[in-house]
Design a protein around this nucleic acid. Structure first.
Lengths: 223, 223, 223, 223
DNA sequence: AATGAATGAGAATTCATTCAT
DNA sequence: TATGAATGAATTCTCATTCAT
C-alpha cells in the first residue's frame, strides 16, 4: 500500500460537486449515492447529525425519500456504514499499492499529518457524523476500530517491505505506533474543529502536531 | 479560587452515590434532581445521548415524566444546561477558594492531570452527553467555551495572587496555557474513553499526559 | 364454567356505545381502549382490515395516534392480539362459572348456535378482522387454535362435572365434538356473513345449523 | 357444459408445473403471465396476501416490476381479477362441454366434492388470496358472486338438457341447490385448510362432506 | 407537588406506480 | 419489449411536551 493510499484512507476522499440532470426520473446510481453522501455530510456540518432526518436529506438533495431508502435501507445508519465501508474498500484495493520512496520517516510523518488535517477539515461533516453515529451504534464503533487496526496492519506490512527504515521497527511495534499516532492526531484535530480551537491558525496546529508526533515517537521508543 | 475548586471544575464534580429509600418517592427537590442527573448520565453511558428520551429517564428513575419537566422545563437540553451551570456555580463559589501552597508548577500540573482523568473516567456519561449536546445545541457550545475562558481567567488571577511562580507568567499567557492544556487533555481523554484506547492501561495514559504537558509547556514557551 | 361464560366466549361480548368527554385531555384508560376496539372493528366492517390505518382509527375515534400506540405499541396487530387475549381472560375467569341446569343437550346446543350466530352478526367487524389478521400473523393463528382448545377443554370438564348427560361422553370425545362443532358453525356463519349468503334469512340459517349440528353429532357418534 | 368443466370451475384449474428454461427470460407472454400467477400464489401461501408486494413478486419471479405492470396494470388487484376471469372463460368455453352420462346424482356429487377438495388443496394460495382480495375489493366480491350464479345457471341448464334425473328438479331449485352446496363445501374446506382442521385426515373430511351433502339435499328438499 | 394519560408534530419506512433507458 | 431506478403519498411509529387528576 502506497503513501497515496494511506492519505486516501486518512482523508476518505473529498466530495465532488455533483450536478444532477433536470429530468424527473434522472438515472445515475453512482451520482445519486454520491449526492446523498454529500448532502448528508453538509447538513450534518450545519445542523448536527441528530438534527438531520432522511426526509430532510431528500428535500435538500432534491431526490425522493424512496431513493434514499433504495440505496440505504436503514436510513442514516446505513449512510454512515456504507460510506465507511466504501472508504475501507478503497484503501484495501491492491491496485493502489505504490512504492514509497520516501526514506525519511520524519518527512513522511509530516506529510501524513498535513494531509490528515487538510482532509479532516474538508470533511468535517463526515467526521462529526462518524462520532455521533458511533455513540448511537456500538457495531459501527467496533467496525471503526477493526478498520483502523486492519488498515494500519496492511500499511505497516507494506512499508516494511519497501523501506529499510521501517523494517528496523518490529511489525507489531510499528502498527501500535501508527494506531497511536492516528488516534492522537484525530482526537486533537476533532477537538480543534468541533469543540474548541487549540490554536488560532491551523498552520500553527499542524506545526504543533508535527512536533507532538516527534515527541511521541521519542516517548514511545523509550517506554 | 482553590486548588480544590480547580479540580472540581476540571472534573465537573463526581456523582454522589444516591441511596434511594424504600419510600415510593424521594422526599425533596434536591434528591429528585440528583436522581434525574444520575439516571440520565448512566443511561447515556449505556445507550448514547440521542437514544435516551425523557420518558425513558422517568421510567428508569421511577419518577413521573411530569416531575422531570417540573425541574427541567425543556427536557434533556435543560438537564445538560443546568448540570453544566451548577458545576459552574460551585466553582465560582468564593467559600471554596483556598490557598494553594504548591510552589512547584510541574507537580501542580501532574495532580491536575491525574484528577482530571479520574473524574473524567468517573463521569464518562456526562462527558459523552456534553459532546453530543454541544453538537446539537450551538448555544451550549458557546456557553461551554465562555465557561472555560471565564473559569481559567479567575483561576489564573487567583494563582498569580497567591504564588510567585505563577506571577512570573503574564496573565494572558497563563490563561492561554491553561485553556490549551485543558483542551488538549480533554480531547485525548475523551478519545481514549469514548472512541479508542490510546494505551492499554490508564496509568500509562496519565504518565504520557504528564510528559505531554511538560512537552507542550516547553513548546508553548518557545513559540 | 357456566353456559353464560360459554356464550360470552362465543360472542366475545358486544360493544358498548362509548361517549367520550369533550375535554382535550380526557382521561379514561378503559374507555379509550374500548373506543379503539369499537372504532377499529366498525371500520374493518366498512372498508376491510387491510384498508384501515392506525391514523384512520385515531381520526375516526377523535383521539390522538399516540394514544393508540400507548395501549397498542405494535398498532393494528396489537389491537387484534389484545382484544383476543382479553376475551380469553374473560372466559377463563372462574367467577363466571355458574351451574348449568340444562339437562337436554339438544336444547343446550340450539341455544349455543343461536347465540353464536347473534354474536357473530353483532361483531362481524371483529371476526372479519380476525380472519384477515390470522393470515398475516402466524402467531395469532396459533394463539387462536390454542385458545379454542383450552377453552373447550375447560368447558367440557365443567359440563361433565355438573351434568349427567355430558358425563356419559368421554372427556376427549366431548372436547373433540365441541371443537368440531365450533369450527363447523364458524366456517358457515363466516361464509354467510362475509362471502355469500347461504340462506336469504338468518332465521333459516339458524334452523339449518341446528339440524346440521344434530346430523353431525349423529355422524360423529357413529364414526 | 360438461362434468369436466364443472370440476374445473370448482377447482379454478390446477397450476401447471412450470419448468423455467435456463435462459434468462422466458420467451413469451403466456409463460410470463403463468410465472406471475404461480409466483404470486406461492408467496401468498407462505406470507399471506397482504404481505406480498408487487416488487416482491418481481424479485421472486426474477422478472422486472415493469413486466408485471405491463400485463397487470393495476398490480395485485389485476392479478386476482384476471386469474379469476381466465378461469371463468375456460369454464364457459363451449368446446369443453361434454355429455354427462352419470345418471346417479349421488355419485355425481361425490365426485364433485372429491375433486373440489383436491383442487382446493392444490391451490390453497389462490383461494387464500381470493378471500383476502374479496374483503379489500367489493367489486371482486360482486364479480365472484355473479360468476358463481352464472356458472351454475349454465351448468344446471346443461344438466337438465342431458339428464333425466336432473330434469325432474325445477331449474331455479337446481341452481339454488348447486350454489348452496358450493358455498357450504367451500366454507368448510377453506376453514379446514386455512384456519383449523376439522378432521385429522382429509379423507375423513371428504367422507364427512359427502354425507353432509346428502343430508343437506334431503334437508333442502323438505324445506 | 406529583402523576402519567394524552397529544400531535415529525421522523422513519413502505410500496404501488411511473418512466428513462 | 423488458428493465429497474425513481417517485412520493401513505403508513407506521417516536417522543418532547401538555395538562387533567
Amino acid at each position: 500500500m502506497s503513501f497515496c493510499s494511506l492519505i486516501n484512507f486518512m482523508s476518505n476522499c473529498s466530495f465532488k460537486v455533483i450536478v444532477m440532470s433536470n429530468k424527473k426520473f434522472s438515472r445515475n446510481k453512482e451520482e445519486k449515492i454520491e449526492l446523498i453522501y454529500e448532502t448528508f455530510f453538509n447538513l450534518v456540518l450545519k445542523k448536527g447529525y441528530h438534527k438531520i432526518s432522511t426526509n430532510h436529506i431528500a428535500k435538500t438533495a432534491k431526490i425522493s425519500i424512496g431513493t434514499i431508502y433504495k440505496y440505504f435501507p436503514k436510513g442514516k445508519e446505513d449512510i454512515m456504514r456504507k460510506y465507511f465501508e466504501t472508504s475501507m474498500e478503497e484503501i484495501l484495493n491492491i491496485n493502489d499499492l505504490i512504492v514509497i520512496n520516501d526514506d525519511n520517516i520524519r518527512s513522511f510523518l509530516n506529510r501524513f499529518i498535513m494531509d490528515l488535517y487538510k482532509n479532516h477539515e474538508k470533511k468535517v461533516g463526515y467526521n462529526l457524523a462518524l462520532r455521533s453515529a458511533i455513540q448511537a451504534d456500538k457495531q459501527l464503533l467496533e467496525a471503526h476500530k477493526n478498520k483502523i487496526e486492519l488498515t494500519f496492519k496492511e500499511i505497516a506490512q507494506h512499508l516494511r517491505k519497501k523501506n529499510n527504515n521501517f523494517r528496523q521497527i518490529p511489525e507489531e511495534k510499528l502498527i501500535e505506533i501508527f494506531i497511536f499516532l492516528y488516534n492522537l492526531i484525530n482526537a486533537i484535530i476533532y477537538h480543534h474543529l468541533a469543540i474548541m480551537k487549540l490554536f488560532e491558525s491551523s498552520d500553527r496546529l499542524v506545526v504543533y502536531l508535527s512536533n507532538l508526533v516527534a515527541f511521541s515517537l521519542d516517548y514511545l521508543s523509550k517506554s
